[in-house]
């Protein structure tokens, strides 16, 4: 299997507080890695560094393929519709408007959500906005997906749908990193990166 994401020796310090110390992680095609840790352990920082949005003090990240990123907060425009978000992110992925809309609506249905044509994002519930957030991350089928606790606001059913979507991506050959503090699905991942103990452990699915 191709190593899609290679994280080598990432360290990050905020003032005097060392958040990440020489963190390594390797995720291959068709694998899911979970990043766990206490509040403030640096989970979101780690993901932002992997996405190239934040600079580490040392270390490197090597990506084979294209990246998709799902931020913790919804990362959407209040006054645009779901379709317009699909068109916007799709333009970045060099998709046609029609293709982006079709792909976005299809992915939304996988999460049991019918993206309304006219409703602006500000009128969507918190959980539905998170579904949009998740769909946008996977638009254009990137080879590496970075998901930062994308299930905030999900009810129990939506939470299970989220994991089913993760497994669909995994089965399609995507390498996925999920930041989580919920341990209920850790038996379904291949690797667990515990940032509190700064160690990598094999997951139950490995």
């Amino acid at each position: 299997m191709i190593e899609r994401l290679a994280v080598r020796g990432i360290s990050k310090r905020y003032g005097r507080r060392q958040v990440l110390r020489g963190v390594d992680l390797s995720v291959h095609a068709g694998q899911v890695a979970a990043v766990v840790g206490e509040n403030g352990a640096g989970k979101s920082t780690f993901l932002r560094i992997c996405a190239g949005l934040q600079k580490p003090d040392s270390g490197e990240v090597i990506v084979r393929g294209r990246l998709g990123y799902c931020p913790q907060d919804a990362g959407t425009y209040d006054f645009l519709t779901a379709d317009e978000h699909f068109m916007l992110v799709g333009a970045g992925r060099e998709m046609s408007r029609r293709g982006a809309r079709r792909a976005g609506r299809f992915a939304a249905r996988e999460l049991r959500w019918t993206a309304p044509e006219r409703a602006q994002t500000r009128h969507l519930s918190g959980g539905t906005r998170q579904k949009l957030n998740l769909v946008l991350a996977g638009l254009g089928q990137p080879e590496v997906l970075l998901l930062d606790e994308p299930y905030t606001g999900f009810d129990q059913g939506a939470y299970h749908d989220f994991w089913r979507q993760v497994w669909r991506w995994r089965d399609a050959g995507c390498a996925i990193v999920v930041v989580t503090h919920l341990l209920t699905h850790l038996n379904a991942v291949d690797t667990v990166l515990d940032l509190t103990g700064q160690r990598v452990m094999p997951g139950a699915a490995a």
Binding site: D73, Y77, L139
Partner: peptide, 15 residues
């Protein structure tokens, strides 16, 4: 200001 929270996602998406 309203675009700032969306920019990270757009940058990763190819913008």
């Amino acid at each position: 200001g309203s675009s700032r929270p969306v920019e990270p996602r757009l940058l990763v998406s190819g913008f």
